[in-house]
Every structure is written in C-alpha cells, then in structure tokens.
Design a protein around this nucleic acid. Structure first.
Lengths: 94, 94
DNA sequence: CAGTATCCATTTCGATACTG
DNA sequence: CAGTATCGAAATGGATACTG
C-alpha cells in the first residue's frame, strides 16, 4: 500500500497505463493536483521503481514519465479500483 | 480510494474477507494497530457501508464485524493488492 | 515547461489512561 | 471485552511565489 497509498497515486498510474506522458499532460489529466504534490508523487513512484523519468532533448524543457515493468505490475490493482469506482457511480446514478 | 485509503483499511478488509470477526480478533490479526485507530477505521468502513457491526448478546461484551455486499465489491481490489505484495516479496527473497 | 521553496492549515497516528 | 478521551508529534496537502 505504501506504493500506491499516496494521494493521486492511483490516478497517475491510471493515466500512465496507456503510455508515457509528460508532466504538463499529467497536470491536465488531474486538474486538482498542485505541481508540488504531483512532483512529490512522481518522485515517490520513481524512487520505488514504478516509473521512469526521461528528459526530452528539445528547445523547450520537456520531461516524459512512463511505467516501468514494476509499475505495470500494479495495473491490476488500479483497474480493480477503477472497476469498483465505476460500479459505485453507476449505482449512484441508477 | 477514499474508501480503502486509510491506514490498515486493506488489512481489515482482508481479514474480514473469509468471514466475520470480532474486535479483539482483528486486533490480533493486525498487532501494530492501536485500539483507537482500529476503531476509527471500523467506524469509517461502517459509515461507508462496507461492513456491518453486530453486538453479540452474551455475558462478556462482544462485537462482530462482517463485510456487507458493498464491502465484498472491494475484495478484488484487496486481492489485487495482496497479489502484487506477494510478488514483490517473492522477488525480494529470490 | 518543469519544477523548487516556503508557509500554513489540516489530518492522522500512536501512546496512554480511563470506562461500561 | 470493546471501546472512548486526550495529547502531542508527524506527515500531508494546498496556495503562492520563484527559477533554469
């Protein structure tokens, strides 16, 4: 749980599950998260080996994050969470 | 995540997944948790409808907790977490 | 763009002591 | 047994401002 317990951590993994994303893209994916907290979570996930950080060489600074094989191991957890969330939402609507 | 994010929450659901358990049994299952925090988590889960609380009529006070149908919906999440945890542990040993 | 630095408010947790 | 009450320490989060 320590790996995915932090705030927004499941969301980050979720958005990275379809492929690499840049910092600003992730911010857009999760509008409520502040840059500070997003950075914190990304660092944690990186330190735990769940994702990789790659600085893109270009005129404008750009950093791309991607799931590592280890990070992919957590996708079933994320999907299970998403599934329950969906179920509950459906129930609330119905 | 708010439902299972709290400390020890996954553990509680895990131990209840095989059937109802009493307060003291849960304390034994998770030795590091204090009575206060355990109570807090149980109350939360109860308030969210994930588990039920039943006071057993007997000489000695006894309270039994059990998963509700809603609580059972979360078991896939818990199992997914447990699976990853197991995998990581195996890897650490190997 | 991709962060870092600070500050502050809130939450949370553990330890301890006490109760019906 | 199954809690509750209280306290203090620590972690966590958001807002804001600033940097290479």
């Amino acid at each position: 749980m320590a790996f995915i317990g932090g705030a927004w951590t499941p969301n980050i993994l979720w958005y990275l599950s379809t492929g690499p994303r840049r910092f600003s893209e992730l911010r857009g994916d999760i509008p409520l998260v502040s840059a500070k907290v997003l950075t914190q979570r990304l660092r944690e996930l990186e330190d735990h080996g769940l994702l990789s950080r790659r600085v893109l060489e270009s005129a404008a600074p750009s950093v791309e994050y991607a799931l590592t094989p280890l990070g992919q191991e957590f996708l079933p957890v994320i999907r299970a969470i998403a599934l329950v969330g969906q179920k509950l939402k459906d129930r609330a609507v119905a």
